[in-house]
Amino acid sequence: MRVSEAFKRFDDHQVLKGVSFALAAGEAMALMGPSGCGKTTVLRLVLRLVDIEDGEVHLFGRNVAEADEEELIELRRRIGVVFQGGALFDSMSVGDNVAFPLYYCLGVKDRKAVSERVEEILTAVGLEGAERLLPAELSGGMRKRVAIARALVYRPQLLLLDEPSTGLDPITARLIDELVLKLKETFNVGVLMVTHDIVSALGVSDKISLMDEGRIVWAGTPLEWHESQDPNVLRFASGLRAVRRGERIEP
């Protein structure tokens, strides 16, 4: 995946002001930044859920903006997406949610094969036996895990995660991180994770990009993040530390 000088405006608000980054196959990257800095918009541009204003997004060697309807469908089917709230289909059971892409994206007809695959992937995310539950009966962490299972069930080459640990307690958030890491290694998928959770970003990703006000203001590895004296990194990290100590955050 390659995003080059991406710009996006919503009405009068310029959300992205030239975002660029690249992600190699099997690599994990965290896109961090404060709320409202444009992280989720980047994910939506990659999927072409919103149209790019200027710049380019290349997926698997193809320019997403130039893809026709058929090409776009084909590109999207190579990507697994975990939306912020899970976006599980309320009217379907957990099993049906996870089986959904197999039936409707891959066109699998063999019910037994689908059932076995669903069981396998639910076991992989630690939700064995949850097939018959409805999304409304699940906790926040379970919903996220079902969403991850649904995104991975058809073995995509790239996994997009939108705030996977938001709204979860720290223990469940770390479980989700471990799960993503394990699945990344098991299935060798590339991961682009949008988050403002530093622990998640450092734990899961091979590289980190920090966004602020529609731009990437810092990029490096988790090790470089630890050692960085960049004011943007320090401000973002110390802001979180200050919150933990109950101190005021400097603007």
């Binding site: 939506r44 084909e74 939306f83 912020q84 599980l88 309320d90 959904f100 994206c105």
Partner: peptide, 15 residues
């Protein structure tokens, strides 16, 4: 479905 991103999920599945 729209406000809970379920419609976006459908699009993301290539539907």
């Amino acid at each position: 479905m729209r406000v809970t991103e379920q419609l976006d999920a459908l699009k993301a599945f290539g539907l």
